[in-house]
Write a protein that binds this DNA or RNA. Structure first.
Lengths: 185, 185, 185, 185
DNA sequence: CATGAATGAGCTTTCATTCAT
DNA sequence: CATGAATGAAAGCTCATTCAT
C-alpha cells in the first residue's frame, strides 16, 4: 500500500518537495488524497519514505560490495559500481535525495541513515585498506569517505540521469579509477 | 542596495526557497517587502542573485588559481583550496546553492554558470595536465571535473559549515591529496 | 449500548458540537467510530440523545416537584431545587445544552422539549399560584417562566459546575428566595 | 475597517462559529477573505471582536443606568431596561454571545468582561441597595447578580428576537417587576 | 452485530505580488 | 524612490460518513 507512492519519486525529483502538490501525488499514484493521509502523516512523511527506501537500497548495495572477496581496493571499486547502480535504478529518488543531503538539520534521520549506509562503512573500508596495504593510509577516513560520496553522487546524477547517458560501466570505470588513483600522473 | 539581501542567504540555506517567505527576507534584511519588489523581480530573483554572487566568487577564485604559476597539478591543488575558501566565506549561500545543483531543469542559468565557473576550466586544466605530464590523461575530462566538483563541495559543506570544524588548510590538504592521488596505495 | 455515549457529554460541553470529533467520542467511550454509526445516525444524533436525556430528567424532576403537596409557591421552590439538582447531576450535559438553547432554529425539537419540560408546566404553575393566592398574578406567565429558567440555568451553571462549588442547598435557597421575593426590600 | 465585520454578527448568531465560513463573512461584508485575515487573526478573532463590542455596549449601558439618580431599586430597574435595550439593538450578536457564555474556559477574556460589565457592578448595586434600604440584603450578591443576568438575557433573547416581538417596554416592565418583587404574592 | 479501511467534500489559512500614494 | 495596504490564487489537511467483510 505505502509502496504505491514510489512512483511519485519522479515528481519530487523533478519539482522538489514544495512544488509537488499532494494533488499531484494523488494523480500520479491513483490514490485519493485523503487516502494518502490515511497512510502517511503528510507530504514530508511521503518524501521521507522515499528517502529511506533509496538509502536502504544504497546501504544494501554497499554492504553487498563490501562482502565481496578481494583486497580493500577491489572492494572499494565494487562500492563505487554498486553506488552508481543504485543511482541508475532510482534516478528520480536519488536526485530528490540530493536536494536534502545538505539540509542536514531538516531531517537528522536522513543524515544518520546516510552515515550508516555509506560514510561509516566506507570509512571503515579505508582503514582496512591501509592495513592490508591495498589503500593509502589517510588521516581522516570519514572526510575522505565523504569526498567519495560526493564525487560518486554528483557524477552519477550528472552522467547517468540525463537523456544522453553513457553506459554505466564506462562511468564506473572512470570514476573508480579517479577515486583510486586520483588525477596525478 | 541589492547587496542587502546577502544576509538572507542563511534563510534560504536553512529552509530552502519555498519555506523562506518574503516576509522573512524583509525581516532579516530590514528592507520592507514592497521595497524588495522594487529592486528584485521576485523571490526567485533574489535567490538567483545569491547564486550568481557565489558562482562569480567561485569563478574568480578558480580563475585566480589557474593563473597561478606551476604545473597543472600544482594549479589543481590551488583550485581545490580556492574552492574550499569560497565555501568557507559563503557557507550559507553555498549550502543554498547545493540544494538546487541537482535540480538542473529548474534553472538552466545556474547550470550554465556552474559549467563556466568550474567544470569547463577544470576540465581544460586536466587536459593541459596530461600534456605537461603532471596529470594522468583521463578519457572524459568533464566527467572527472564533475567528480572533483562533487568531492570538494560535499566535503566542504560537511567539514567546514558546522560549528566546531577543522581548519581549512587541513581539509584542503587531505582533499587535494585525495583528488591528486586517490586512495590507492 | 446507546447510553455509553453519556460519558462523551463532557466533550460536547467542553468543546462544542463541531470541535468534538467522532474520533474523540470514539476514544472517550471506547466504542469504535463505525460502531457509533451503527447505533446513531451521526454526530448530531448523539448530541440530541444527550439533550433528550437531560431534558427528560429535567421534565421528570419538574413534574415530581409539581406533584409535591403545598401551595404553588412551595411547589415553585421545589421546582427550583429540582432543576438545580439536575444541573448538578449532569453538569456537562447541562452545559452542552446551554450552548444550543439560543440556537433555537438549529433544533426545533430541543426548543419544543424545553417548552414541554419547563416553560409550559412552570407557566401553568404561575397561573395556578395566582389562583390559590400564593403567587402574584403576572401578565405573561410564559415570559416569567422563561426568566426563571434563565435565572436558574445561568446561576446553576456558574455556581455549581466550577471546582470551588457551593453546596447545592445554599444556592437553591438563595435562588428560590430571589425567584419568589425578588430583590426589593 | 474592523467595524465592517459587525454586519456578520447575524451569521454567527444564526449558524454558530463553526457553521459560519470565512467565505460567508467575506460575502456578507464585501471584504475579501484575505483582507479579513489582514485585519484579524482568524475566525475566532472576529467573533471575539463581536463579543467585545456587545459587552462594551452592555457595560456602557449598565454604567449609564447606574449613574441614574434615585434609589438602588430604581437604578436596578434602569439596568434591566438598559440591558434589554442592548439586546434589542444587537440581537444577533447577543444571541451569538449567549452560545459561548457557558463555554467559559474557551475564552477567559469573555468571562472576565462579562464579570466587569455586569456581575461586578450589579453585585455592588445590590449591596448598595441593602444599605439605602431600597433592596433586600442578600447573602451572595454576585450569585444573585448572575441570576439576574440569566433572567434578563434568556428572556430578552426569547421575547425580543423572534418575529412576533412584544414591545420592549412591556417586557422590561414585567421583567423588572419579577427581578424586584419575585413571583410571590 | 461490529468494525477497519477508505474517501469525497470542503475550509482555513498562507503568501507572493500589486499599486496607489 | 519607497512602502503600507490590500488581495487573488492555492493547497494542505481534516472529518464525517460509508461499506465490504
Amino acid at each position: 500500500m505505502r509502496e504505491k507512492v514510489l512512483v511519485a519519486a519522479e515528481l519530487f525529483a523533478e519539482f522538489g518537495l514544495d512544488a509537488t502538490k499532494m494533488e499531484d501525488v494523488a494523480a500520479a499514484t491513483g490514490v485519493p488524497k485523503a487516502t494518502l493521509y490515511y497512510y502517511f502523516e503528510g507530504k514530508e512523511d511521503i518524501l521521507a519514505f522515499l528517502f529511506v527506501h533509496v538509502l536502504d537500497q544504497l546501504g544494501r548495495a554497499v554492504g553487498g560490495a563490501l562482502r565481496t572477496g578481494g583486497t580493500a581496493a577491489e572492494r572499494l571499486r565494487a562500492v563505487v559500481c554498486a553506488h552508481l547502480g543504485v543511482i541508475e535504478s532510482f534516478p528520480a529518488a536519488s536526485r530528490a535525495l540530493q536536494f536534502d543531503l545538505g539540509r542536514a538539520a531538516r531531517s537528522p534521520m536522513i543524515a544518520a541513515r546516510t552515515e550508516a549506509a555509506f560514510v561509516e562503512p566506507v570509512g571503515a573500508l579505508l582503514v582496512e585498506g591501509a592495513r592490508d596495504g591495498s589503500l593509502r593510509p589517510v588521516a581522516h577516513p570519514r572526510l575522505v569517505a565523504t569526498a567519495i560520496l560526493g564525487a560518486v553522487t554528483t557524477t552519477g546524477l550528472n552522467a547517468l540521469t540525463p537523456a544522453a547517458k553513457r553506459p554505466l560501466e564506462r562511468v564506473a570505470d572512470d570514476l573508480a579509477t579517479f577515486v583510486l588513483s586520483g588525477v596525478a600522473a
